[in-house]
């Protein structure tokens, strides 16, 4: 019998990922928090849509919707949504310089410059939105 009859003693133990993999490590937990912020922003987008619908339906519908926003449940939700959105801002601004690299010859713009630049833009946009929203034509 010339066929090879070697016994193979290898038996690699395959480790499959468990569904709770992300609970094992602080880094993973914060990653899931980051991804989880999307749920709150999604719900807020739906709330904006509802407001838009009420706006289209006329003054009475709009006023009723605005009044409903004073419901404590809504205020708690929006407080959490604001925190979630700010965590998105923080993580997104850190990720962006990894994707867009600005280079002049040998010099690479430090990531901290890009992060700081984005925060400046954030402050400007927030000031414009709140400035127009709170003061123009009120």
């Amino acid at each position: 019998m010339s066929t090879s009859e070697k016994t193979i003693y290898r038996k690699p133990y395959v480790q499959n990922q468990s569904a709770s993999w992300w609970l094992k490590n602080k880094f993973y937990i914060w990653y899931m928090v980051r991804e989880g912020t999307a749920i709150f922003v999604f719900l807020y987008a739906l709330i904006l849509m509802l407001g838009l619908l009420r706006l289209a339906q006329g003054e009475a519908a709009w006023n009723a919707w605005v009044a409903s926003l004073s419901n404590p449940a809504y205020i708690v939700f929006h407080g959490i949504a604001l925190i979630a959105a700010m965590y998105h801002v923080h993580t997104f601004f850190k990720m962006f310089p990894k994707v867009i690299v600005i280079r002049f010859g040998n010099w690479k713009m430090p990531e901290s410059y890009l992060i700081a630049g984005q925060w400046v833009g954030f402050v400007v946009c927030t000031a414009v939105i709140l400035g127009i929203g709170l003061f123009v034509g009120v």
């Binding site: 490590n25 880094f27 993973y28 990653y31 990720m95 990894k98 994707v99 867009i100 690299v101």
Partner: peptide
Amino acid sequence: FVGYCSEVCPKSVDPAAAINQGKA
């Protein structure tokens, strides 16, 4: 973009950056 790969890399290769530049 979990980013843990770059966190653990002993040589600061930053593979997460390479992959996400690769996405672009």
